[in-house]
Each structure stands twice: as structure tokens, then as C-alpha cells.
Design a protein around this nucleic acid. Structure first.
Length: 588
RNA sequence: GCCAACGUAGCUCAGCUGGUAGAGCAGCUGAUUCGUAAUCAGCAGGUCGGCGGUUCGAGUCCGCUCGUUGGCUCCA
């Protein structure tokens, strides 16, 4: 599916971007034709299509989209040429002022060019750099997709405009393919699957953005966390547990109350002191660091915690498991000496890539964010930190994009984005230097010279948060978890009541072998039981009929419709054992 | 937080312009014991998100509120 995007980028020298931008113009023309008092804002091509923002007295509805599409089709049929015209900027300002297009005037007033270009088709004129397709007839397959509010120039202090999203392709087939892709994404939606597979829920009575893990979801989470803990111990980390609340003085000192307060919940008063629920784990880890004198011989310290934090997120941004108010970070802090920093960063990056491979993600891109204008910390340290990040990315051969000045004020960082089974990118891993907190908490270690030195501090979350990661995992596998993660690995089913006794025996053997198995001994037809197991995406159905009882065997049927030959229970168990390994390990 | 839409049984959804709620699946009961994606029948299940208003009468109209969805903004 990603292929379509690349293959179809260009046709007859026209890029998809040009086609979409032209389609946006046609849509704007249609909207102007159909509604009065419509003022044009901007209408660019975007990743998967285009949009145009309008300021209109009329409120558009879903039905309007169809009407606009129809009018667009007419304009395409008319095959109006796109005509370019150049004009001195001052003249253009006058032109658009007369046409009652204040947004265009505002854009023009801020432009520095002497002359600007206008594009017109029919009686529609728009300020535009171009280029466009030669005529509206060249526009192929398009569809309007959705309606949304959008602030003028993306600033929430500005007026809210009406945005119409659409997409366009060179031909109908590609459009259909894209729409199918959207359907596929909908089918994989973790909110839908979360309900269907009984993984988690959000209760209105408890509050939005707060996750309840049901037995099956909790089972998967437990496997993830067990694996995660083991992997951390194996890779030189120690694990911590820290409190959920801390006094206001702590958050004052850390700077959170000054810089992060709007994301923190109101304090609770305990014995005349204000306590805040933690939005981050770092101050606590620092407390542990500072609980004794540290020598350079102790470093590096790598301390990890599955730390549950709470952050206030605006109501409109909450989204299933992907954007929540309470979540568990797979957090860690690395404290080390300047000499150790390069190795440490490389190790973190390697470890992260290893974890992603274990969970079935291979396509990963790095994003490096460098020093912003306003920053704290010694520039020399920034430079060393940047170098260690760059080196690590290079050593691992990752493709990398650089966000100049995009780092936080307290340190540079690498973020990783992983691509899922249907080509979508998710931001997950973040590895951040922190030059701020060690200062604020006066963290030190004693060097070989007997002097106090400031340690480097690196903050990292690899999976990001367990909630979000779980949501991504559900969508990546479309709910069909690989065997090692599947909440239920095997469902044992009888054909008639006659086989119950042997089936129960089989179930017992599986459970003894720590295989996650459950029974379906109901008085139902086999087809019915198979169907339910398939719908629940259970990796194996074990069918037990008279034949199996007689031979003391089981007949496994895999999720992908494959029926395996009958085998005895022990053979099946070792088969499951083998298949449920991750990187040579069995997680039980 | 902002714009828009939506909120009816556990789930998916129907209910025209206001006349006191309906289907399928799931659940329960019974029959059936049937070899790889749905056996049949019966029963039960809802203060129509919440509060207030208009009306003789509100699931249906209005206001407020909570929540969800799609975006925008935000994500030091």
C-alpha cells in the first residue's frame, strides 16, 4: 500500500501534489459557486490529499460535500484552462480587496515579492504560486472526505474557519485503493478491536482518558511488561519503583510548576502540604541518585521504571489508548560521565531497535532535534551530546531527519518513528538529554580527581507508554497478536459432549505447560465454535472429536485457516513452545 | 480549549413532519449431539447520556451539561 504512494507520484510530468492542489482550486470554485459570502483562506496539497479553508456564513454539513462534489465534476467536465497571470503585489492587494477576500489581502500584505502570481479557471481567481494542471479536465479521480474546524493560520486566537478535506488521484483505481486503505485502517482501529476482543474500556463514570485493562488486555500487558523487565535486566538496567505523588517543593525545584503546570492536576492538601500527582518520573529518580554520594566508579547508572503518570490533556485531543490522561511510561534515566556518553547513547539506540524487532517492527526512522534559540546548559555539552546522537544513528545505519532548533530547551534528542503493517508512522521512542535537572537538583559525582562533577542525564522511553504502545500493537497486528503475545493461545473445543472428559484432560496438560488455553465445551456445532475462535483471533483451535479421543490426539487448526494433521498433546505443546519464542526466548 | 457531527437494550443499528420504544447479534431456557467461519424455538432485556424548558403530550423541539467522533490548537 505504501507502494501506490510512490509509484503514482508522477504522471505525464504532473506530480500528485500539483494534481491535488489543482483539485483544491476546483473545490474552492465549486464552493464559491454554491454558497454566498464565502471567503477564501488557504488550500494546499497535503500528504494524502488536500484541503481548503473557508470563512463562510453558512455551516457546511456532510450533505454539502456531495453537492460540492457534483459541482466539481461539472467544472472538470467543462475543462476550463488554468491560467497564470502575474501582477505587482500592490495591484494584487487592491484586486483581492475589491473581490472581498480579506485573507488573501492579509497574505499578500506579508509577502515580500514585488510581483505575485494569480491562477484562474473560469471566473475563479486565486492567489497562488502554482503550478497547476493545464486545465480542469486533467483532474482525475477525487473525493471529498471530511469537514473540520481549523484556526486561521493555525493560531487558536484567530477565527475558526471551515476546512474541507479531500483527496485526488490520477485514476479511479488509485482512488479506490486509497479508500480501501482507509477502510482497512478503520477495521484495525484499536478502539473498535479493543471492544470486540474485550481488551480494555474507558468508563464515563471514572473519567475520560483513563484506561481500564480487561483480563485479555491485561494479559497482553503483563506479557509485554514481563518481557520488558527481563530485557532491561539483561541490558544492564536496574528497576525502580517510585511514589505517585510528591510535595509541591519538589515540583517547584524541578521546574515543572513553572513550565509544565498546565499539564498537571490540581494539588491535594495533606498535613498542610500540597502534593501533586506526578506527570513525570524524573524527579523521583533523581532523589534516589541524590540519596547518597556517587563516585565515577558507580557510573553509568541505568534506572528504569514502568512509571504511571497523569497529565491533563485537553478534552478534544483524547483518543482511545493513543492519547490519554493516565499512562505508564517505560521510562529510564541514565546518569553517566562525559566519557561514557557515546557508548551509552549507542547502547540505548541499539536496545530500542532490538525491542522494536521483537514486537515485529522493522521500518524505523530517526528524527534528531538540535539546540533551540533559548537553551540551558553548557554549549560544549550540547555539542558533545549532539555528536553522540549523530554517531549512534550513523552506527546503526538508520535513516534520519534533522529538526534544526527543534530540541527542548534542556537538551537535544532523538525520536524514533516506526512504520506499521499498513505503512503508518508512529512516534514512540524518545531519547533526550537533560542539562536542566542535574543543575536544579545539584547532582554530582566524585571524579578520579577527587572533585565534584556534574553527571550527564539522559531520559528515555522506548515503547513510549504502555497504553499507546498497546494501541499501536493492536492496529499493527489487526488484533491477531503473534503467539507469544496472544492473550489466549489455544481454544480447546469438543465436537459433542462425548469428548468432554478427554478434552478436559488436554486442557489440563496445556495449562500445566503454561500455555494460555481455554475451553469451549458448549453444546454447539463445530462450525460455530470455529467461527468464534476465528473472530476472536485465537491462534489455535484444538478440535477434539471421537477420532481424537480414540487416538488420544488433538487436531489443531491455525488462525489462517490451516488445518494441521492430528498429533498428540506433547507434540502440540512443544510446537507451541517453539512458535512462541521471541528472539530465542520463551516468555511465560 | 475551539469548530462540527453524534449519544436509543451488553454490541451494531432502525424509529417520517412531537402521540407514551423496535430489529439482528450477544444473554437466559429448552430442543438438537451435529467434524473446521453462524442449528432451531421460546424468554428476558431500555427512566432513549444527564439536568432543565416548551407542549395536553418529548427519544423526537429548545437551552445547559457530560461523553464520543472527525479536525484545529496543544503534546516544556
Amino acid at each position: 500500500m505504501q507502494r501506490t504512494r510512490r509509484d503514482m507520484k508522477e504522471k505525464n510530468g504532473i506530480t500528485l501534489e500539483v494534481l491535488r492542489h489543482s483539485t483544491a482550486h476546483v473545490m474552492a470554485q465549486a464552493v464559491k459557486d454554491l454558497y454566498r459570502d464565502v471567503k477564501l483562506a488557504i488550500g494546499p496539497a497535503i500528504e494524502d490529499g488536500f484541503y481548503y479553508d473557508f470563512d463562510a456564513t453558512e455551516r457546511f454539513s456532510e450533505d454539502d460535500l456531495e453537492k460540492i462534489e457534483k459541482r466539481m465534476a461539472e467544472i472538470v467536465r467543462e475543462d476550463l484552462p488554468f491560467e497564470r497571470q502575474e501582477m505587482p503585489r500592490e495591484e494584487a492587494i487592491e484586486f483581492f480587496r475589491k473581490r472581498g477576500e480579506p485573507y488573501k489581502v492579509e497574505l499578500l500584505e506579508e509577502m515580500e515579492d514585488e510581483t505575485v502570481s494569480l491562477y484562474s479557471q473560469g471566473d475563479f481567481v486565486d492567489l497562488c504560486r502554482g503550478p497547476h494542471v493545464p486545465s480542469t479536465g486533467k483532474i482525475g479521480a477525487f473525493k471529498l472526505l471530511s469537514l473540520a474546524g481549523a484556526y486561521w493560520r493555525g493560531d487558536e486566537r484567530n477565527k475558526m474557519l471551515q476546512r474541507i478535506y479531500g483527496t485526488a488521484f490520477f485514476d479511479k483505481k488509485s482512488l479506490r485503493q486509497y479508500l480501501r486503505h482507509l477502510e482497512e485502517a478503520k477495521k484495525r482501529d484499536h478502539r473498535k478491536l479493543g471492544k470486540e476482543l474485550d481488551l480494555y474500556s474507558i468508563s464515563e463514570d471514572v473519567g475520560p482518558g483513563l484506561i481500564h485493562w480487561h483480563p485479555k488486555g491485561a494479559r497482553v500487558r503483563n506479557i509485554i511488561e514481563t518481557f520488558w523487565r527481563q530485557a532491561h535486566y539483561d541490558n544492564g538496567y536496574e528497576l525502580l519503583y517510585t511514589p505517585h505523588i510528591g510535595r509541591s517543593e519538589l515540583w517547584q525545584r524541578s521546574g515543572h510548576l513553572d513550565f509544565y503546570r498546565e499539564s498537571m492536576y490540581a494539588p491535594m492538601n495533606i498535613d498542610e502540604n500540597n502534593y501533586f500527582v506526578k506527570p513525570m518520573n524524573c524527579p523521583f529518580h533523581i532523589q534516589i541518585y541524590n540519596s547518597q554520594l556517587r563516585s565515577y566508579r558507580d557510573l553509568p547508572l541505568r534506572w528504569a521504571e514502568l512509571g504511571t503518570v497523569y497529565r491533563y490533556e485537553k478534552g478534544g485531543v483524547l483518543h482511545g489508548l493513543l492519547r490519554v490522561r493516565g499512562f505508564t511510561q517505560d521510562d529510564a534515566h541514565i546518569f553517566c560521565t562525559p566519557e561514557q556518553i557515546e557508548d551509552e547513547i549507542l547502547e540505548v539506540l541499539r536496545f530500542s531497535l532490538y525491542l522494536w524487532r521483537c514486537f515485529g517492527f522493522e521500518d524505523i526512522t530517526a528524527y534528531l532535534a538540535t539546540r533551540p534559540e533559548k537553551a540551558v546548559g553548557d554549549p560544549k555539552r550540547w555539542e558533545q551530546a549532539m555528536k553522540s546522537l549523530e554517531k549512534a544513528v550513523e552506527a546503526e545505519g538508520l535513516s534520519c531527519e534533522i529538526d534544526e532548533g527543534g530540541g527542548a530547551f534542556y537538551g537535544p534528542k532523538i525520536d524514533l518513528k516506526i512504520r506499521d503493517a499498513i505503512g503508518r508512522e508512529w512516534q514512540t521512542t524518545t531519547i533526550q538529554f537533560d542539562f536542566n535537572l542535574p543543575e536544579r537538583f545539584d547532582m554530582t559525582f566524585t571524579g578520579a580527581d577527587g572533585e565534584k562533577h556534574r553527571p550527564y542525564m539522559v531520559h528515555r522511553a522506548l515503547l513510549g507508554s504502555i497504553e499507546r504502545f498497546f494501541g499501536i500493537l493492536v492496529e499493527h497486528y489487526a488484533g491477531a497478536f503473534p503467539l507469544w503475545l496472544a492473550p489466549v493461545q489455544v481454544r480447546v473445543m469438543t465436537i459433542t459432549d462425548k469428548q468432554k472428559a478427554f478434552a478436559a484432560e488436554v486442557l489440563e496438560s496445556l495449562k500445566k505447560a503454561r500455555i494460555r488455553a481455554e475451553a469451549d465445551f458448549r453444546n454447539e456445532k463445530l462450525g460455530f465454535k470455529i467461527r468464534e475462535a476465528q473472530v476472536q483471533k485465537i491462534p489455535y483451535a484444538l478440535v477434539i472429536g471421537d477420532r481424537e479421543v480414540e487416538n488420544r490426539q488433538v487436531s489443531p487448526r491455525g488462525r489462517g485457516n490451516l488445518t494441521l494433521p492430528s498429533m498428540d498433546v506433547e507434540t502440540f505443546i512443544s510446537r507451541i513452545r517453539e512458535e512462541s519464542q521471541v528472539m530465542g526466548q520463551t516468555i511465560l
